[in-house]
């Protein structure tokens, strides 16, 4: 950090007195980063497997089966989004929404999961989806090999916990992610699991110094768990429109608080 002039000096004093200067990153992070890559590798292998089955159902014209596989398949993608997003071309190809295209669903370039979701739920059909499915599977496989070749940047790993919460807070809590299928709660599950995994991996590094912080974070995760479990159905969740306004409010505050708290995780571990 750099400060200038008089106000800089004042800010510096303030920062020092509140203990805002974090430690330097050290090699204790090697274990969590390695374990996180192993976690991501497992998730992306599952994603390839699930996407293979999902796209096969789409190509076979089996709308019911494709619908049933849609949300569970996305789960592992949502859990590893902070890493998947590092490849912006693939992220757009796999997970972009109609809003990212000027004329929305009508745009022939609209690809990936949400293009198929649109077909399955809005048109109740797999017409014209075969090439989209082929491309999705190819993109997911490409993601798998790119992740295998990637040395994970530690700040992206640690920062990923906050990124996941930011995603939910900014563009998911409204239900606009899975707007045709309303399977948003599945996505949330993936996002929360992914964020929590990161927190759990770095937990030993900050357990002593940041006990209070971890307690707050854990409490918020527990709150989210509590709400999600209320809406469980079978192996998954009911549609997002079933969420009560009160629960949505609790979820929103928990997500925002988590985003706020987890945004300090990088700094706490010396990764600015």
């Amino acid at each position: 950090m750099r400060f200038h002039g008089l106000c800089g000096a004042a800010a510096l004093t303030l920062a020092l007195s509140s203990g805002a200067f974090a430690q330097q990153a050290n090699l204790d992070l090697v274990e969590p980063v390695a374990e996180y890559k192993l976690y991501v590798s497992e998730q992306v292998s599952k994603l390839v497997m699930d996407t293979t089955a999902f796209t096969a159902a789409v190509k076979a014209g089996d709308v019911a089966k494709a619908k049933a596989l849609f949300a569970p398949t996305r789960l592992s993608y949502e859990a590893i989004e902070p890493i998947a997003e590092l490849f912006s071309d693939l992220d757009a190809a796999i997970d972009s929404r109609a809003d990212d295209y000027e004329n929305g669903e009508a745009n022939p370039e609209f690809p990936g999961f949400h293009r198929i979701e649109y077909g399955l739920w809005e048109k109740n059909s797999t017409d014209g989806l075969a090439p989209v499915a082929d491309k999705l599977l190819a993109d997911v496989k490409e993601l798998d090999s790119r992740i295998a070749a990637l040395t994970f940047p530690p700040e992206k790993v640690v920062g990923g916990a906050a990124v996941l919460m930011e995603e939910v807070a900014a563009t998911k809590i409204s239900g606009e992610e899975d707007r045709y299928s309303h399977t948003d709660l599945w996505d949330f599950r993936g996002n929360f699991d992914g964020a929590r995994k990161i927190v759990d991996l770095v937990r030993p590094l900050i357990a002593k110094k940041e006990a209070k912080f971890l307690k707050t974070v854990d409490a918020n995760f527990a709150q989210v768990d509590g709400i999600l479990s209320k809406y469980k159905k079978g192996d998954g969740y009911v549609t997002y429109d079933k969420l009560t306004e009160a629960d949505r409010k609790v979820l929103a505050t928990a997500v925002n608080t988590l985003a706020e708290d987890l945004s300090t995780l990088r700094g706490k571990l010396g990764l600015d």
Binding site: Q24, A25, N26, L27, L29, V30, E31, P32, V33, A34, K37, T151, F152, P153, P154, G270, L271
Partner: peptide
Amino acid sequence: LKAFIGPLS
């Protein structure tokens, strides 16, 4: 030291 976290992991 930070530069080695990625390679080591």
